[in-house]
């Protein structure tokens, strides 16, 4: 396995991510850079919608590598994540051989071979001839057992398939793991990764992000939007608006051709930012918005 590194300095990470419209800060860029240099997976934690998945996508885009994504869920197992034998095809093969004289060993060798293997994301990432970016999304949704199973992959970049032997990565993938911290991950897994906590960005960076993603938005409006969204964020809400909501809101304002955010605009578009009725009521109350006909 060769380990070509993708970036030569933190500045380069910043610049190349910016080309893909991802506005990182030194903190994010350093973590990406170090993970790449040391060839270790990067574990990202933080609230939903602050750009964890997006970071992985943009790193893939900026390095020109293919993004292989494994979405985790409760009950995810090896068969869905790594590989599975295509048993229907194997059965057909055996039935096609019926009547002919074959030793069992011969049949076994022939049906436990490449053509009968169903490749799932993890195996795909390992076997790819070109380097890939592997994103293991929402790892905290899986069970403990699956985490343990990932350990071999994450530290050695290899997997063991009983019938085929150990397969080592041909090129070292860049690996990202994301977690929404709905449960504690195991120490063993954390130890194998570099750690990055992504939080809501500083006002200035948030404005830059919005302006990069929605270039049509006037700068003054972006400024106003960020002020408002940051104020909303500090309230106690069921779902705090994150960057993805800010961007959605910016797009909405552009669509509507709004020039300045006032009471009426806020009241009519607030449902883009807040997903729960209680949250809407809470914020309307704080901002003393006039009661809206839609909300009742």
């Amino acid at each position: 396995m060769n380990a070509p590194t993708q970036f030569s300095s933190v500045k380069e990470v910043l610049a190349r991510l910016r080309e893909t419209n991802y506005i990182a800060d030194t903190r994010v860029a350093t973590a990406v850079y170090i993970a790449d240099r040391l060839g270790k997976p990067l574990l990202m934690e933080g609230p939903a919608g602050v750009g964890k998945t997006e970071l992985a996508k943009c790193v893939a885009a900026s390095t020109g590598t293919e993004l292989v994504r494994l979405q985790c869920y409760e009950g995810l197992d090896e068969a869905r994540a790594l590989y599975e034998w295509n048993y229907r095809k194997q059965l057909l093969r055996i039935q096609a051989d019926e009547g002919r004289e074959h030793h069992w060993e011969e049949i076994e060798d022939s049906i436990f071979a490449e053509p009968f293997l169903l490749e799932r994301p993890l195996l795909k990432a390992i076997r790819s001839p070109k380097p890939v970016t592997l994103l293991i999304d929402e790892i905290d949704r899986t069970e403990f057992e699956f985490e343990a199973f990932l350990l071999e992959l994450l530290s050695e970049f290899q997997v063991t398939i009983p019938e085929l032997g150990t397969i080592a990565a041909r090129t070292q993938p860049i690996v990202f793991l994301t977690s929404n911290a709905t449960r504690e991950l195991s120490e063993a897994l954390k130890r194998r990764c570099m750690y990055l906590f992504l939080d809501y960005p500083e006002a200035e960076r948030e404005r830059d992000i919005i302006l990069t993603r929605v270039p049509e938005l006037p700068e003054a409006l972006a400024e106003q939007l960020v002020r408002l969204i940051r104020s909303i964020r500090q309230l106690e809400l069921k779902k705090r608006p994150s960057i993805s909501e800010s961007i959605d809101w910016a797009r909405t304002l552009v669509e509507l051709g709004v020039e300045t955010i006032d009471e009426n605009v806020t009241q009519e578009t607030l449902n883009v930012v807040l997903k729960y009725r209680q949250d809407l009521e809470r914020v309307s109350q704080q901002l003393k918005l006039p009661p809206s006909p839609h909300h009742n």
């Binding site: 903190r27 350093t30 850079y33 170090i34 993970a35 570099m194 750690y195």
Partner: peptide, 9 residues
């Protein structure tokens, strides 16, 4: 932040 990514969890 480089050190933090190695030492914090």
């Amino acid at each position: 932040w480089g050190l933090a990514s190695a030492m914090c969890r």
